[in-house]
Write a protein that binds this DNA or RNA. Sequence first.
DNA 1: AGATATGACATACGCTTCGTATGTCAACAT
DNA 2: ATGTTGACATACGAAGCGTATGTCATATCT
Lengths: 195, 195
Amino acid sequence: MGRRSETMLENRAKLIAAARVAFARDGFAAASMDDLTAAAGLTRGALYHNFGDKKGLLAAVVAQIDGEIAAHAHAAGEAHPDPWQGMLVEGAAYIRMALTPEVQRIVLLDGPAFLGDPSQWPSQNACLDATRHKIAELVAAGVMRPVDIDAAARLLSGAALNAALWVAANPDPQDALPKAIEVFTHLASGLKVGG
Amino acid sequence: MGRRSETMLENRAKLIAAARVAFARDGFAAASMDDLTAAAGLTRGALYHNFGDKKGLLAAVVAQIDGEIAAHAHAAGEAHPDPWQGMLVEGAAYIRMALTPEVQRIVLLDGPAFLGDPSQWPSQNACLDATRHKIAELVAAGVMRPVDIDAAARLLSGAALNAALWVAANPDPQDALPKAIEVFTHLASGLKVGG
DNA sequence: AGATATGACATACGCTTCGTATGTCAACAT
DNA sequence: ATGTTGACATACGAAGCGTATGTCATATCT
C-alpha cells in the first residue's frame, strides 16, 4: 500500500494548496469546488472522498495555516530572553502575519464564520494554545496578574487579530502597523503586575 | 405618494425583521431568500427591488443592529460621572450585548466575512464610532495616553468582541462573563496615564 | 377625463453550485 | 484467477441566486 498512500497524501496536499489560493482570492462562500479541484488536476470526487464536504476542506486548510502561524510566532518569541518582551514580540509577529490576505481571509474571517468559535476548532487553534501557554508561564512567574488564563489569551489574541484587520484595511498600512503594535503593547501592560 | 411610501417602508421593515431571524438562525450563507421573503409575506422581487442583492439586505440588517447596540452602550456609559469608568461600563455593556446570538452571528461573524472590514461599512459602524469619540475625549482630558485614536478604538473594540465570542462559546457563560470583563478592564488600564 | 409613464412588486427563466449515487479501474487478497 | 476494496471520476438531482419579463395600481400629462 506504499505507493497508493503516497499519491493519496500528495493529492490531499494538492487540494489543500489549491484551496488556500482559491479561498484567499474568492472567499470560502464564493469559491467553486469544481474550479478548485480542476486547478489541482482532480475533480470533486477526490474532494468529497478526502474531506467529506466543503467545510471539511476549509477545516484542513485552516489547521495548516494556523499551525504555520503558531510555529513562526513561537519561534519569534522564544528568541527573547525576557519572558514579557517575548510575549510582546510574539504578539507583534502574530499581527504581522495576520496581514497576509491568505491568513486574514481564511483564518480570521471565513474560519470563525463557517467553522464556529476558534477555541473549539478541531485543530484546537495552535495560535490560541501557544498564547495560553505563554500567559500561564508569565502568571506562574509572577510577571502577569493572576487573571483567568483562557480569557486573557482570547482577549489578547482578539486585540492582535483586530489590529491586523485594522492595519490591512488602512490606506497606509506601513504607517498604521507601528501604531497598532504600540497600542497592543500598552494594552498588554495592563496585565503586568505593578504595570 | 403618501400611501405608497408607507407600504414601501413597511415592507422594507418586514424584510429586515425576517432577515434578522433567518440570518441569526441559519447564518447568512445558508439563509434562503425564498424562505426569508415568504416569511415576510413577500417574494424575492421585493427584495431585489429594495436592497439590490442578498448582501444589500445583510448591510441593512447590520446597520440596524449596529445602531441599536451603539445606542444602548452609549446610554449605559453616559450615566457614569467619571469618564474612565464610563468607558469601562460602555465596554462591558458592549460585551453583554454581543452575547445575543443575533448580534454575534450577524454583526460579528457574517458581517466582516461578507461585507469586509467593519471600519469601512456603509453604516460607518456606529459602535466603533462611539468608541472612537469616547477615546478622543479621554485623550483630550489627559486621562488616556496620547495613542492613535483609531487604533485604540479598534483594538479595544476587538478585545470586547472576542470577549463576547469567548463567553458565548464557554460551557458556563455566567461564570465566564465576569472573568472576561475583568481582563478587559485590566487591558484598558494599560492605556491609562500613569496606569 | 383618458392616455401614458412610472414605481413596486410577482413570476418565469437560466445558470451555477453543492452533495450524492453510481461507475471505473488499479491494487491487493485468497 | 477471481473477488474485494480503495481512490477516485462521472452522472444526476435539487436548491439557490440574479435577471428578465410581466402585471397592476398610482401618479402625471394634456
